[in-house]
Amino acid sequence: MKVVAAIDSFKGSMTSLEVAAAFEKGVKKVYKDAEFIKIPLADGGEGTVKALIDNLDGKMVNIKVKDPLMRDIDSFYGISGDGKTAVIEMAAASGLPLLSPDERNPLKATTFGTGELIKDALEKGCREFIIGIGGSATNDAGTGMLSALGYIFLDENGNELEPNGENLINIKSFKDDKVMKEVSEAKFLIACDVDNPFYGTNGAAHVYGKQKGATGDIIKILDDGMRNFSNVIEKIKKTDISNISGSGAAGGLGGAFTAFFNSELKPGIDIITEKIELENKINGSDYVITGEGRIDFQSAMGKTPSGVAKLAKKYGIPVIAIGGSVDDEIGNIYDCGITAAFSIIDSPMTLGEAMDTKNAQRLVEKTAEQIFRLIKQNKKN
């Protein structure tokens, strides 16, 4: 019996490896000699650095950078074991959770800290980057990130502008003579799971501005600024990013990578599964276990469970998904290749009790044991 566990973290409760380890205990109560392979995963959001670094025998790098309001904070990124690839979550420097609700203001927020993470990795010799751009507090079209790497943005009088959402409307040109030369040597894979254009009714400001603290008037200012900056980019770089799918991700950070760097935007789970060669690891297994904190209709839309299941489906391998909860509306997950989905909750409990790490591990172990007892009985019949 060979079982592969390729599971996302249960955010706020268990890491990917903790979920997999608890499941292994349950399986081995039934199949003591089972070969059990644990593969930590993430889909480009929180936990991406840890998951990839665990798979690539890498190390974590701790560093002080600027938060979205230019205050010093402790942040991190990862470097692969061979020292060539940096793995970065932009939310670790420019994420919404770094601000209290009353601090959220996309007119002032900047991605400068994300640029500092990239800069440090470039200085350490990394030339390949995997960057998750979910969870941003910003709508600066990546100007903060670009500024940290040496770009200077100017108004109509040639005055340097602070790189934030408020100043996008004032940008008339930019200078790149002080940009790190290493930037041109690097390749960037951007984990992007949205298809929003740079500006417009489906663009960065209109779709995501409100959750970042923007009112209706501010959203218009931001959207007008995005349109202006897009025009400046097209004029100077001869690149039209306005309608590129995903260019509006993370407040336009996706567009900045597209326009200024050698980059490619792809679904996060696709990037990660390809990088760790998950398909090869799944092939030949009897069962694949996947999951995340909540299994719902979104699980089939580029999330970890669907990415894993699509690979297993190629080989006809049954896929069992587990979650802290399983929504009623999950019919579309079966089309991806998931055989069945199970909630680990076995009795009424508070959210705090359900998310308690030790209790959650017990519940995963118990669920795994019950699933594989049924599998064993079925094999006897």
Rank of each mutant, 00 (worst) to 15 (best):
G132F: 05
F129K: 00
G113F: 10
T110C: 11
A121Q: 14
G113H: 10
F112R: 13
A121M: 14
G132Q: 07
E128L: 02
E123F: 03
N105P: 07
G113R: 05
K119L: 11
G115L: 09
G134M: 07
G125R: 06
A121R: 13
L122M: 13
I133P: 02
D120E: 14
L122V: 09
F129H: 02
G125M: 11
G115S: 06
T114G: 15
G132N: 03
D120H: 10
T111E: 10
A121S: 15
L107Y: 03
R127K: 14
E128G: 11
P106R: 01
T110A: 08
F129V: 04
I133L: 01
G134L: 10
T110I: 11
L107C: 01
G132D: 04
R127P: 10
A109G: 08
K108P: 00
K119H: 13
T114R: 13
E116G: 08
I118R: 05
G132V: 06
D120Y: 03
L122A: 14
G134H: 03
I131F: 03
P106H: 08
E116C: 12
I133A: 08
E116V: 04
D120V: 03
L122F: 07
E123W: 05
I133F: 01
F129G: 00
C126Y: 06
R104W: 01
D120N: 14
R104E: 05
D120I: 02
L107N: 04
L122R: 11
R127Q: 13
G115H: 09
G134C: 00
T111D: 11
E128C: 02
L117Y: 09
